[in-house]
Structure formats: C-alpha cells, structure tokens
Amino acid sequence: MPLQINGRQHVVVLEPRVSLLDALREHLDLTGSKKGCDQGTCGSCTVWIDGRRVLACLTLAVAASGHEIVTIEGLADGDQLHPMQRAFIEYDAFQCGYCTSGQIMSAIKVIEEGNAGTDEDIGEFMSGNICRCAAYPNIRAAIRHVRDEAGGRS
C-alpha cells in the first residue's frame, strides 16, 4: 500500500491489522514516533494526518493510506531545526526523550489550533502527552516561547 510520509511516497506491503505506528517503526525504520502504551493513553505516538494531530497506535496503516502523514522526522529542514525543536532544547523540555517526539508534534499544533493562549490552556491541551520525567513546566515554557517569538514558523 502507498503511504505518503513527510512528503515522500512509500510503498510497503502490510497486513490490514498493522498499525500506522508499527508500520513506521517496524517496516519503514522511522522510529521517531514512539510506542509508549499502544492503547491510546500516553500520546508518545502523536503524528499528523492531514494536518491534525492523531495517535498512530490507534490508526491502522491501511486507513492512513491516501492521507498526508507527518512524523517528527519531517519537521527539521535539513540541519535547520523547527523552532519548537529548538525551544525544547533551550528550555530543557525533556529528560529521557522518549515522549518528546509526541510532545513536539502536539506542541506545534497547540499553537496552530489557538489553544496556547494561556498556561492553563497549554496545560489542558498538552495533557494528552504524558511525560513521566515530568518536564511539564518546561514544556509549557517552550511552547510560550515559540508562541511569542515573532516570525516563528509555527
């Protein structure tokens, strides 16, 4: 089946039961999207489909065929990191790094969705991404920074 990922067409033979997350990680070697629970309860597999953030673990790859998929690997422009990626480094918005891909994929959308107006909103709309290291205040700081930074790509 064809999968359009990060602007590139991949053709891969997959059974219908294969999740988009496993397709990325086990079949396409795109391991930036993380498997944390495989149950829709942690957010570390967050990717964008047709511009919206969704969970790759509860999406079947076959159902995503024909749609535009963006993963963490699709954010940076060569060595030029996305402003949110830079802000996550600058504000130390992660520790172990395992939830980070999902956090960043959500964080960019939180701003785009218009849900980053207040800290309370950011907290609420980032709550689908669990960070067990509890870097939450720093994640909010990174999002505030990108929100406030004029000319940020987000």
Partner: peptide
C-alpha cells in the same frame, strides 16, 4: 543529546 531527541533520531 538534545538534537537527537527532538528530531527522533
């Protein structure tokens, strides 16, 4: 390890 972690690498 920041760049590796924020890019999924």
């Amino acid at each position: 390890d920041g760049p590796a972690k924020v890019t999924g690498a």
